[in-house]
Nucleic acid binder design. Sequence first.
DNA 1: GGCTTGACCTCAAGCGCTTCATGTGTCCGA
DNA 2: TCGGACACATGAAGCGCTTGAGGTCAAGCC
Lengths: 153, 153
Amino acid sequence: MATTEKATAADAASVSIQDVSRLSGLSEATLRYYEKIGLIAPVPRDESSGHRRYGGPAVETIQALGCLRATGMSVQDMRAYLRHLDGADGDAARMRALFERNAERVEQEIGHLRVRLRYLRLKADLWDARERGDAEAEHRSVEKITHTARELR
Amino acid sequence: MATTEKATAADAASVSIQDVSRLSGLSEATLRYYEKIGLIAPVPRDESSGHRRYGGPAVETIQALGCLRATGMSVQDMRAYLRHLDGADGDAARMRALFERNAERVEQEIGHLRVRLRYLRLKADLWDARERGDAEAEHRSVEKITHTARELR
DNA sequence: GGCTTGACCTCAAGCGCTTCATGTGTCCGA
DNA sequence: TCGGACACATGAAGCGCTTGAGGTCAAGCC
């Protein structure tokens, strides 16, 4: 009876920030931050407690954002993504371009990281040689490091 | 003879922040920042202009830091690196551990980036399918995306 | 001598969060 | 009904830089 009203309200409203955080992979702090900067629309609050209660559609949007942000996409590009979701003319092309651009970015990052990895491994070898007092190995490491350092930029 | 002193001082002092930036790959702003936070020792200044003049040893240190920071090493670890450079007992082991730890970090990052790259490529495919009005390809993309999104975390 | 140009300076704000301090509202068992 | 525990709330500070505003100094040109 009296519970009916409450229950209904509770159903739609029962998605807490913690729930959304788990569903999206975004931290609670990040969710508040995204709301603050207007990437996410203002989330309605529970009357008495003032806690955020997320609606179904909002949750889905945020899950998508969680994926994008996991790819390292910038907040700016996420904004663009949301703008073009509706599907107006030419939006599909813009979206494709957006993702291709980001894919290239990640590809380059991988390339850079490979060089960095090699550098770090060589440095570890160097100190390993020093630890063992192996002057010859040390010398070889130094040479390789010098060479790799150039690629590192 | 009398000139020796002056010339020596001038020689050592003529390395500007721009020079060091080029040699190390660190931006001028970053060099000032590193000095401000005490990662780099205070750099002597030109008397009249107040401009920084880097000494030879400082330049070498900074070049090394440039490599480390290019690997994504944290400022904290760079501090540790500088602390253990002198070569006291046990330092070699600490250094090796430091570099191995960072190598592992980079290796993991590469793994994550690979997943992200796949995700972004699939998203590009999806919008490409939409652009072409190919409902079937769109459907296939959606499936793959759903699957990859899980790995994305 | 005045003017522009560069290279440099400092200080402050911005980025995209994370972490921390501090303060409520809700619910639970004792 | 008192007192915790707990999930939230806000606001400020920190991280590692980057960007921008506003100003100084030295050198070259007319």
